[in-house]
Computed example of a mutant assay.
Amino acid sequence: MNMTLPVIRDDMSERELDSIVEKATTASAFLKAISHEGRLMILCHLVSGEKSVTELEELLSARQAAVSQQLSRLRLEGLVVPRREGKAIYYRLADDKPKRMLECVYELFCQDED
């Protein structure tokens, strides 16, 4: 993916600057939401598909309360979407942003250096 980063210049209009600030605010909220190890691991597990809260508890070796708290934050930030089936609640990624972010994190921190 080839992209051009914005360059803040002295001659930018107020509208252009406001747009950059708005995007920075959105990006900051996203980064805060994924900055917790538990939330990051939940997203990693959801990349492969929808999971129930019980499945996530087992995969993370975590208590239900802790998993639910992290899912609540991810839901609040719009990163995951719940679905109820009887007593079970299932979660999936809301869109492809978390997956794309995880690919970047993997590339930056997980691949072996040459």
Rank of each mutant, 00 (worst) to 15 (best):
V81S: 14
E57Q: 15
M1F: 01
M101A: 15
E22A: 11
Q69V: 02
D112S: 14
F109P: 01
M101C: 12
E57H: 07
G78T: 08
V7Y: 03
R75V: 03
S61I: 03
M1S: 08
E22R: 07
S68R: 13
R73H: 14
D10W: 09
L5C: 00
L59E: 15
E103V: 05
E113P: 08
L74C: 02
K99H: 04
Y90T: 02
E58Q: 06
R39S: 13
P82Q: 03
Y90G: 03
I20D: 11
V105N: 04
M1D: 05
E37M: 08
S68I: 01
P6M: 08
R100P: 00
S19M: 06
E107F: 11
I8F: 05
E77V: 10
T26R: 11
S48H: 09
A62P: 00
P98D: 06
S72Y: 10
A94H: 05
I42V: 08
N2P: 01
S28T: 08
S28N: 02
E107M: 05
A88F: 00
A29M: 06
Y91D: 13
K51Q: 11
I42T: 00
D114C: 04
P82C: 10
D11Y: 13
L93I: 06
N2L: 14
G49F: 07
R100K: 11
S28Y: 15
L71D: 12
K87I: 05
E55T: 09
M1C: 05
G86W: 11
P82V: 06
V81M: 15
L43R: 12
E77S: 14
N2D: 15
L71F: 07
A29Y: 04
L56Y: 07
C110E: 09
K97W: 03
L43K: 02
L93W: 13
Q69C: 08
E107A: 03
F30T: 10
T25C: 10
S13E: 07
V105F: 14
V67K: 05
A62N: 11
A27I: 05
D11I: 03
K87A: 15
L40N: 04
L60K: 01
R73L: 11
E113L: 11
M3I: 00
K99G: 02
P6A: 13
M101E: 13
K87R: 15
S72N: 13
C104Y: 02
R83Y: 10
F109L: 04
E55P: 08
K87C: 05
T26H: 12
D96K: 08
D18H: 14
L93F: 01
E16N: 11
K32T: 09
R9T: 10
V21E: 12
E57A: 00
D11P: 04
L108Q: 15
V81E: 15
P82Y: 00
R9V: 07
R9Y: 10
